[in-house]
Amino acid sequence: MTLILCVWVLLPIYLLIVNSLSTPEEVIAFPKRFFPSFNVASLEFFAGFSGIVKALQSSIIVATITMVLSILIGAPAGYALSRFEFRGKTTFRVLILMTRAFPLPLLALPLAIMFIRTGLDDTMFGLALVHTMLALPFSVLITFSLFSGIPIELEEAAWTLGCNRVQAFTKVVFPLILPGITASAVFAFVISWNEVFAASVLTIENRTLTAFLLQSLDVSPMHLKFAGGFVLVMPALIFIFAVRKYLFSMWGIANR
């Protein structure tokens, strides 16, 4: 079972790496060599592609805004969920998850109209708002589990030792969850980085890398598609790998 899952995940990644590091001839050749020829011509060509730098820039800016917003909004919600008892708490938690079940395509048209009316259409900030909405459930749930992992006694001890609520948070809780918050931020970044639908629908000039590639790679030769895919997937994979520990803790799997 584990083997099947590993192959399921790793094989496409492997093929992607092999093909993007091969010459165009090798890409369409069969059988494949196990080790690529480490030909970076496709990647070089790809890097010189017009508009790619600008799209990359947009992607980074949008993802950064998403990251900041989802932490600023998500962390207080996570704190409230873990520390306070209030009516409808369980419902609230389920609702947060449910937002992920709502199909984005259904929202696309009303959102586009609303964005045109408010002048948010084709702006990076507007797109970042949509991405924040997508990342928020995760940042709330991750920070919720982070805060829950910090015994309330630590905060109470800080209160008895002369802190008010805010000081107890900044002096005790914040330093302790900083690594986890970073992880949650990176995860939000990756969600925005990978998102293609809203990016394609809501932007024209300020396309992010994913939307840009979706549009241009459609008509590109095979080896360029692989190179594009490689550029898209790698940052996300590296980021997720870096923060895997915290994602596991969100899903309740111990990995220590």
């Binding site: 006694e153 630590l154 109470e156 001890a157 800080a158 005790v172 330093p175 302790l176």
Partner: peptide
Amino acid sequence: AMVFQNYAVFPH
């Protein structure tokens, strides 16, 4: 000043 059951020593 309070001493807690689980000590509540700040880990950081």
